[in-house]
């Protein structure tokens, strides 16, 4: 009896490892989109995949294929339909719907709010999430296909920008991570167009070794910042 229990637990553990790896592979196959705001089809796939993965783990009598095949199939269908959505606007509208304008020229479109089943409480909550506590500051509000609201404020409520003040300046790219936890990050080096020798010279100047660097960021102009390991 105890041996049977132990064997059963081993089966569950091995299945958990396999299905965990499979879900990671499935999420990577779907791409970064899945990890951001979810479209309706992506939400469906996420819920389905998690439920399907649980079935063979909960019930060792069920074949592993009953989890593996549906997960891979559903994820593949999702990737293919999202590729079709990229190429075909009609299909994209059918799958994800359209963004809806709920505030235009400072006026609430109550009919549109009814269409998207958005109550005034939902609207006010979304405004507050965007740091707006006075609806009079809103020029334009749009409900995206993910359900999120994006807001464009009226001129008097907008933050002042250097463009508005006519202050001249140069746009530059933000600093990139060059060294992370004692190792070079090649993407960061390429993005900042710097080379390793320059970085090593800086480290020599700062009297710090590569393995002792927790974080090293730098931009194209050579402006750098170092955080040593504790």
């Amino acid at each position: 009896m105890i041996i049977k229990m132990v064997i059963n637990m081993l089966v569950v553990v091995i299945r958990s490892i396999i299905l965990y790896s499979l879900i990671i592979f499935a999420i990577r196959l779907m791409g970064k989109r899945q990890l951001g705001e979810l479209q309706p089809s992506e939400l469906v796939v996420t819920i389905l995949v998690s439920n399907m993965a649980a079935l063979p783990i909960e019930n060792p009598n069920l074949p592993m294929l009953m989890g593996v095949i549906p997960i891979l199939f559903v994820v593949s269908i999702e990737v293919i339909t999202s590729s079709i959505s990229l190429r075909c606007r009609g299909f994209r509208n059918f799958m994800s719907g359209n963004a809806k304008i709920v505030i235009k020229d400072g006026k609430i479109n109550q009919a549109e709010m009814k269409n998207v089943r958005y109550s005034i409480d939902d609207l006010m909550e979304s405004l507050r999430e965007n740091g707006i506590f006075d609806i009079r500051e809103v020029q334009f509000a749009i409900v995206e296909t993910t359900g999120k609201i994006n807001i464009y404020q009226k001129h008097h409520a907008q933050c002042v920008t250097t463009g508005m003040m006519e202050i001249e300046g140069q746009s530059k790219n933000p600093p990139s991570v060059i060294i992370s936890d004692g190792e070079f990050v090649s993407d960061g080096l390429n993005a900042s167009e710097l080379n390793k020798n320059w970085v090593l010279n800086i480290l020599k100047k700062e009297k710090i070794q590569l393995k002792d660097v927790f974080l090293f960021t730098a931009d194209e102009t050579g402006d750098y910042h170092i955080i040593p390991k504790e």
Binding site: L29, G31, L65, I69, L72, F73, V75, S76, I77, V79, I80, S83
Partner: peptide, 15 residues
């Protein structure tokens, strides 16, 4: 990705 997914669908249907 499309090629991998197409292969997965074909493999699933074959199995």
């Amino acid at each position: 990705r499309l090629i991998i997914c197409s292969c997965i669908i074909v493999a699933a249907l074959t199995i």
